[in-house]
Design a protein around this nucleic acid. Sequence first.
DNA 1: CAAATTTCCGTGCACGTTCACGGAAATTAA
DNA 2: TTAATTTCCGTGAACGTGCACGGAAATTTG
Lengths: 352, 352
Amino acid sequence: MSKKQNNVTINDVALAAGVSKGTVDRVLHDRGEVSRKSRDKVLRAIEELGFSPNIYASLLASPKDRLIQCLIPEFSEGEFWSLADKGIREAAKIVSRYGVRVETVTYDQYDAESFRKACSRILECAPSGVIVAPMFGSVTLSFVKELSEAGIPYIYVDSKLEEDGYLAYFGMQMYRSGYLCAHILTDGRSVPDTVHVVRIARDKAGLSDPTAMRRAGFMDYMSCNFPDVRIENVFIDPNDSCSIDSRLDAAFGSSSGPKFIVMFNSRVHLVADYIGRRRVRDFRVVGFDVLEKNLAALRDGRVQVLIAQHMDKQLVAAVSSLTDYLLLGDKVMNRDNYAQMDILNICNCDYY
Amino acid sequence: MSKKQNNVTINDVALAAGVSKGTVDRVLHDRGEVSRKSRDKVLRAIEELGFSPNIYASLLASPKDRLIQCLIPEFSEGEFWSLADKGIREAAKIVSRYGVRVETVTYDQYDAESFRKACSRILECAPSGVIVAPMFGSVTLSFVKELSEAGIPYIYVDSKLEEDGYLAYFGMQMYRSGYLCAHILTDGRSVPDTVHVVRIARDKAGLSDPTAMRRAGFMDYMSCNFPDVRIENVFIDPNDSCSIDSRLDAAFGSSSGPKFIVMFNSRVHLVADYIGRRRVRDFRVVGFDVLEKNLAALRDGRVQVLIAQHMDKQLVAAVSSLTDYLLLGDKVMNRDNYAQMDILNICNCDYY
DNA sequence: CAAATTTCCGTGCACGTTCACGGAAATTAA
DNA sequence: TTAATTTCCGTGAACGTGCACGGAAATTTG
């Protein structure tokens, strides 16, 4: 463990180029006031000596107050987005060592106006970087446009828009996850005539359904591999809790054969509860996301498989990437980071 | 993005405690030569002011040449341990920004003497930290003992020993993985009378078999859930390539029913090749690890499921953790980091 | 050619730690 | 009491970069 390592400093470069360190610094940061000739000499010297700046000295000398703001939907304890917040808080602890603060800003995912307001609050704060889980396309577009103009880098999580200004994306491939869901539901089994897709979501017009692509992947797999199986959608209003039983009774009541059920959002535990209450037998349920309630259902056999992404880890990764970018400047990161699709069953879920 | 953030410096502490910064520094690093009274005053001042040292200044002022050495088995391109090396190289790139160098040191995993030599080479280098994939228990024990005495922290990967000096562990839970393997092989299917466990490994005495616990988990699941199914071991010498066909012919040749096959190390592609050559039909093969050859077999249906761990990510995590520890000093890390057991099938393997 | 302006560049302090050095204060020995 | 130790502590120079300041050199203007 000897001393020193990269001896070549800004001073060495200055010496080699026959200028002062001030000039080298100006070249390094592209802030002008340097003649062509000096610039070339400095650039050549940097190249020859293999100089790369000492990040510690650099960070020490420019102690900016850095703030990362994360814009995600509101959540209650145990809900899907609380996992994201857990990741954010974890990341906050880590990057605080580097002098970076992290804040969570939430909005009502069913209210575009609330999203808009959260956006403008963030723009007022003028943070060093932003992480956003977008729900409203057009609002998001104008938001990230303003961020770009203010020179604030941003990262998408959960889903992303078809534009090109983002620094990185962390999320699942929704279509593939639906395809996988269908495979897991059916592979190696005798599939009943009807498969039920339970859809518990507020059905407001104009909202882009984040699970639409997932449903598409599911349908494609089924129509390709089981063209004769009927896919029956069961729509349920999440606000009307007593409608769950009646709607599911109506859907399942008639037949007594095996029931194959899938759900595309994180609320499969509601179906599991129904199964528990009604003592349903001979069923196969595949759902998404590792909420506590879903895990409980997995453990006692009311759900067979959960397809999960590590939402918390994704946010840790997003915050860490953004921090790296903020501190180290260049993008060592991948731009698109697709979350792993984890397959959880009763056997491996305790080790997730 | 205003300036400055944590104004309280070592000087403020010194002022508040009525001593000099030198004394504060001595207290901070526990290097003695401080009276009880001064020590208490400093400690109280730190507490009151909520002082925490600026890591950049700290790192700048103590430019040690830090080296992490990683001790893993030798490998050829595409083999299991080359994935680990890939992770090491990736991590090396990341942590080089922090002035930390990373080296891979390899040994012959079938030759204890080679392992011993690699250990003493590392001890000579006196690196700042070590990551070790242990294969020989007793040699490893004396190795880590010497590391401890030299004050060199070490991290286990892949497997760990029953001792208490390690900084962290990154690896799979072997027993659980065998249990999961059995579940995946059988769940929801009609299981044949005989299940084949193909064991391709050099069978030298005195070597601890890293897959022994995995096999135990598998056997426990089977004897619990399918007590009547016979588990037939098929031993094959990896050096004698032509023995593969004859041994497997002997094992499978007689019956014509469905064949259930598992392997506990990463060489399931050898069985897949046999299946391809012999055009075996009606089989279910479950194996481990995402080698390129295994993935190819998964893609064209010669293997149904692979249970995988992200060996590369694990090593990235291990190197990063060790770097954090080396640079930041305290252990923000978890001690035991159990790798996720990923279930790969033909449907999701391309997105791994 | 001198003065005014612009372009360019060197100097030196600041950032907050680490640590060697030397010396003051306290303790012990003579 | 003085000298010799030992214990304890303050001082100040690094570490390498960022940036403000002021001034020299080059250019333009009158």
